[in-house]
Design a protein around this nucleic acid. Structure first.
Lengths: 173, 173
DNA sequence: CAAAAAAAGGACGCATACTCCCTAAAACAA
DNA sequence: TTGTTTTAGGGAGTATGCGTCCTTTTTTTG
């Protein structure tokens, strides 16, 4: 694999549960919460892609469709905010979904700055068909946890998201 | 904000803790583990950027420097694997760090396919200076949790990452 | 009412994180 | 040794997720 051997415990094998030697020092990657969260996010994207293989839709795209499913229409900013992405990122996602015919976009009559986005009948059908695959991906992510741990995990992660909401570039609510 | 009102509970306000009406149905975004993980990852990137404002380094870049800090040298693939990113993503990150003089790269003598990557003295200094900021970002992420919850959270997230490791495009170990 | 502030969106650029396809080099097998 | 397969890396293309600068439109304020 490598021509030169690894000498430290930064790898997963050497890391394990007891990575912090002195207090809270985050010496190796597996003791850094942010690192683990990034890895878990990667994994969820992977699981989602696996379950939705033929559909070719991403988690964020599905989240947008989910929000619009139960709404008459939303401007791009509100839509982006409610799925928790940046305004400019959201605009890109919307553009692709419009191109695929899953969303429709029109200039607002009452506020000519705003684009009103709606889900199309095709988009609605798509959501109906994809929901089981999405749920399988969600379940596989937390499957390694016990029943009790799953609720606990959701509680804790919600607490962190709510408390640090303003730190994100796409604060919600 | 919007010209048309939101009618459903997909938003954060209506969501809360009791989002699942029938069994495990993930009806609203705040009940979807994958969604919450994506948000938490966003937040960590935001916190990291905030703490390291003047340094202009990302979490993945710092992870790479961290790994190379304790190692003689690594080929690009091994380096990417040990920080948990895809081979091609890793190559891009390395390219930027080389451009900034924090890493050095040379063709291996023993295997002329491989690029051996090393941290430069400047990179080493950089890591030393940045570590406190990185640790502040890590601490702020889990600060909303109680002392006991923090260890529990790390346990659980490690369990999920290890069990689903192969689902990611950048499996480790 | 006119000037200023705010808000929505577009356009461009950067960084992560993949895909697929390609070349070159090494390892392995017949 | 001669093929075949594996491995390392590069290049092109796509998607998220941000920043910044800019225009247009609306709202607010003096």
């Amino acid at each position: 694999m490598a021509t030169i051997e690894k000498s430290t415990g930064e790898g997963p094998a050497a890391a394990g549960k007891a990575g912090r030697e002195h207090g809270v020092s985050y010496r190796d990657l597996w003791s850094r919460p942010g690192y683990l969260v990034r890895r878990l996010h990667q994994i969820h994207v992977g699981l989602f892609a696996e379950e939705c293989a033929d559909k070719d839709l991403t988690p964020v795209q599905f989240a947008m469709l989910s929000v619009l499913y139960g709404v008459q229409g939303l401007d791009q900013f509100s839509l982006s905010t409610s799925v928790g992405v940046d305004r400019t990122s959201g605009a890109d996602v919307i553009k692709r979904l419009v191109r695929r015919g899953l969303l429709a976009r029109e200039r607002s009559e009452t506020d000519r700055r705003a684009n009103i986005v709606r889900i199309t009948p095709a988009g609605r059908t798509f959501v109906d068909q994809m929901r089981p695959a999405m749920e399988r991906a969600q379940n596989r992510l937390i499957e390694p946890l016990s029943e009790g741990e799953r609720d606990l995990f959701l509680e804790m992660i919600r607490k962190m998201v709510e408390a640090n909401n303003s730190a994100s570039r796409a604060p919600m609510g």
